[in-house]
Design a protein around this nucleic acid. Structure first.
Lengths: 341, 341
DNA sequence: ATGAAAGCGCTAACAG
DNA sequence: CTGTTAGCGCTTTCAT
């Protein structure tokens, strides 16, 4: 245990070559005689050499790691994040992309003011080469903090305030429209909405798109009950809706989790889905499949968006000096029809 | 953008002192004249200095970061992990403990052979000071790989093979017993079990404890249908159970997610919970509360266990040369009575 | 194709 | 209490 980890120097001595040569072999640089390569590889094997990340990062100014920061607020934040299948899809998308490029994805939680500071310090001090941020709150200060710390950053979803930073986003309005058209097409006439916090651009646009669709078909603007993306809040909103509009025959929920909550309430009250009330969700997260009945929903290509986010960051980090404008990549939603509508 | 990040040297020049003094101020070492401290702090402010993590880690041989590795297998691994509220509790426990010690918790996913290699490289090359591992599979090779790479490691749950490594675990047998006693006490007589993969020690012990309780009360060993900890598998197991034993009046599921699946099936078939069939889960994860009806369950003090795991690792990393035996810390489960039983 | 040498930015003895 | 001096382990010119 006392033995220090072997260094490049040790390997060089063992192989009878210089440090530089060993370094070249380790990093797969050409211009090394094949026989010497074997020699070195043998020595590496024997010594059990492992490069030292810190030393390498110090000179290359690169860590080979990228942070995926889930940012929001509240106690038991991780618990909430882990209860929402949406994040799983983001992580999968990012991890899939980064693995193939032998970059280490690192998941960080910024759940409080103190945590934000710690996280910004970590990446700002060169703990990673850049940051991918998924914010839960619209007025999240994290992106600005990251920018101030000169950390290459890409966001999932455009921030409320215009910020000079790359991001990927969805055409939420088109998604809302898709939901509205579908409900109309299957004959619903007394339609209601379980909305989401209107301070989120995504919430507003989903709702606007949905209203669009109804308006174009000559329908009134639907009643809206607001939730906060959780199952419980969806159930509560559905209860409210049913109380005020017992004759409702179609519901659009701003995400799948709330749609699931709505379904639970509906079924408890003996309403058949979709016969009595049709339900459309949003996201196409994993609950859309496990929900009873499986949800018809507006699919957000989250994995693709996440991968694109990682790719954008990669380009920014590689940073050919060409300082390109931070772009926003907008993806198109898609209606997935299952049983609930 | 071209300006190099300021270094200790720059700050020293700006403040008119030596590098060492600035370093002392930055690291809060005593023995620095207060007036000079102010001088230095001013210079830091003006230059916008941020310490370089790599340089610091290189000399201190410490990163101030700890990896929390979620290890398992399968496509869309992150998706599954994020669908299981259990992990959220682990993360919360670890994060809570580490934050207070200004250590950066880093979440890593080891979902495939390649990923495992990458992750072991990352931490083995000094990317973090140690690893906390939560394995999904009993024969996970990761702990051994970590050990071979000389990474300080602590596990959540004892591994199948004896491994010289610290871990925290639950008295699963006692937990099973608690569930059995409760079902018996509320008058259930035709009891069945939704089990979990028997290659997991935890599964076997929960079941053994449950059987214990029944046996002591003079009951036969209950029928068992096996699931894999997911909602779907719980529903499927419940369906099987009802088919083979339609008269069942009490069910013990090896985790909450499966219990929830069971509840869904039961309700669809018109069985009232707990009047017709009482259901007891395991874990007391967040679904226990959101489930309809809320689940009576065996609580696993996951947050405490996770914090203890982080603490053990901390002690190991600080490593007074005293090489203590790797211990296993065993926690006691607790019955939480809600509505389902 | 290989080696020698100069740091990367920081901490930690050791002097003074 | 402060400054000087060695490195930590690695990559990377620049010679050879």
């Amino acid at each position: 245990m006392n033995r220090q980890a072997p260094t490049l120097e040790d390997v060089a001595r063992e192989a009878g070559v210089s440090r530089a040569t060993v370094s070249r072999v380790v990093n797969g640089v050409r211009n090394v005689d094949p026989s010497i390569q074997d020699l070195v590889r043998g020595a590496i094997e024997r010594t059990g050499y492992t490069p030292n990340r810190a030393a390498r990062a110090l000179v290359t100014r690169r860590t080979g790691a990228v942070a995926l920061i889930v940012s929001g607020a509240g106690d038991a934040f991780a618990g909430r994040v882990f209860a929402d299948p949406f994040f799983g899809r983001v992580v999968n998308g990012v991890v899939g992309y980064l693995r193939a490029r032998s970059t280490q994805p690192i998941l960080l939680f910024a759940e409080s003011e103190a945590a934000r500071r710690q996280v910004v310090d970590y990446v700002g001090q060169g703990g990673t080469d850049g940051a991918l941020v998924v914010s839960v709150r619209p007025d999240d200060p994290l992106p600005d903090m990251l920018l101030a710390a000169r950390v290459p950053t890409v966001l999932f979803a455009r921030p409320a305030r215009a910020t000079p930073v790359g991001c990927v986003d969805l055409d939420h309005r088109a998604g809302g429209r898709l939901a509205g058209q579908h409900l109309l097409a299957r004959g619903c006439r007394r339609i209601a909405v379980i909305g989401a916090p209107p301070d989120l651009r995504a919430s507003r646009e989903r709702l606007a798109g949905f209203r669009d669709a109804l308006a174009r078909a000559g329908h009134d603007s639907p009643p809206v009950a607001e939730g906060v993306f959780t199952l419980d809040s969806g159930a509560a909103a559905m209860t409210t809706l049913l109380h005020d509009h017992p004759e409702v025959d179609g519901v659009f929920a701003a995400n799948d989790l709330m749609a699931q909550g709505a379904c639970q309430v509906l079924r408890e009250l003996g309403r058949r889905i979709p016969e009595d009330v049709a339900v459309v969700g949003f996201d196409d997260s994993s609950v859309a499949v496990t929900c009873r009945p499986p949800l018809t929903t507006v699919r957000q290509p989250v994995e693709d968006m996440a991968a694109a986010m990682a790719r954008m960051l990669g380009e920014q980090v590689q940073g050919t000096v060409t300082r390109t404008e931070p772009r926003t990549l907008v993806f198109e939603p898609q209606l997935v029809v299952r049983e609930s509508a």
